[in-house]
Amino acid sequence: MTLALQSDQAVDALTAVDARLADYFADAHPLVARHGPLFLRLWDEVAASTVGGKRFRPALVVDTHRALGGEAEAEAIATGTAVELLHTSFLLHDDVIDGDTVRRGRPNLIGSLARDARQGGLGRSDALAWARSAAILAGDLVLHSAQAMVARLDLDGPRRHRLLDLFEESVFVTAAGELLDVAFSAGVSEPTAADVLAMTEWKTAHYSFEAPLAAGAILAGASDATIATLTRYGRRVGLAFQLRDDLLGMFGSESVTGKSTLSDLRGTKMTALAAFAHDSPFGAEFREAIAESDPSEALARARAVLVSCGGQVYVEELIEAQVRSAVDVIDAGGLPDELHEYLVDVADRATRRTS
């Protein structure tokens, strides 16, 4: 899914983000290499994990900044790069929490390091334990670097401090959402439907949509009213985006999404889909389906139940409602025509995607 404005200038900006990412990993190579081959191997795997991403979060930063008449192009590209590093950090930690070893259709950092460890003679359990620990450390490193990149921007103090506050808020909100996700899946807390939607929003919407849009506006020197409009829009589209992700996690094609359709079942994820099924007259049947020992059979049965109980339609309707609300927000927000048109297109692409 590409969310950048369709222009040579937009393509150049995302190429510049890719180049900035490559420079970031290359520049740290000498420092990393001083600490031995294992640390260097980890660093190279982190760099590899950033290849092939959609880059829509940096696109939101850069395109919003441009559409608002901003003149801090280099800072927008650097901030977009920092947002991508923040995303990488969250993915690394998320894969540990979810027990995933594949991302974007290939072994993720955990999968690659565990494979190497097994080839070196470790048993499967020990190899996975080592790789997951390494992924936690990698996520911590990249998280720090994302914030440091923003702190070093050549900006006036108020704008730089506002961006740092925005990044810090993203970390807190995303961590809160992830904690609830784990709590619901483990049975530590019994969620209501509203709790599940709040978790869904916190886990993705803030750092994926609210923060990039607000960052672009801050860099452009936009008014507080404009930033508030973009934040409200981003919250709604971000929720719809994650709801679409949940649908793809259950009904999507693994060859298209690049992620296992069994991961949500394996971790008994409490998505809006699952919450609806649990609370429906089909709840017992759904619980039996996901407890099926054969993964493929569990997936097939769960899909059938979610269709029968109306869960799939329910989530599709939630997505449509969030998109309508998001468009209403920007219709009333007094945004420049170019930005308004762009955001309408973003909402459509983000919520009708297949990967």
Rank of each mutant, 00 (worst) to 15 (best):
D116E: 12
V327Y: 11
D224S: 15
S49T: 10
S263Y: 05
V307H: 13
L5G: 07
I77Y: 04
E316T: 09
G70D: 09
V305N: 08
A176W: 05
V323K: 01
G249N: 13
E254P: 02
V313K: 10
L213V: 10
E178T: 14
D63I: 03
A222D: 06
A326L: 11
A220R: 04
R324A: 12
A16H: 02
S208K: 09
A148P: 01
R353N: 14
A76G: 02
R66I: 04
A214R: 03
T81D: 02
R244E: 15
A183D: 15
V307E: 15
F25K: 10
T64Y: 03
P191S: 15
A16G: 00
E201W: 11
L86P: 00
R115C: 08
V173H: 04
A72K: 00
L164W: 04
D156V: 01
L85Y: 03
L339C: 05
H93S: 06
A272C: 04
T351I: 02
T229P: 10
F184D: 08
D98S: 10
A289L: 09
K259S: 14
R352H: 13
G334K: 04
P58I: 05
A28D: 14
V102L: 08
A217M: 06
Q242D: 05
A350Q: 06
T271F: 06
T81A: 06
T174M: 08
L109K: 03
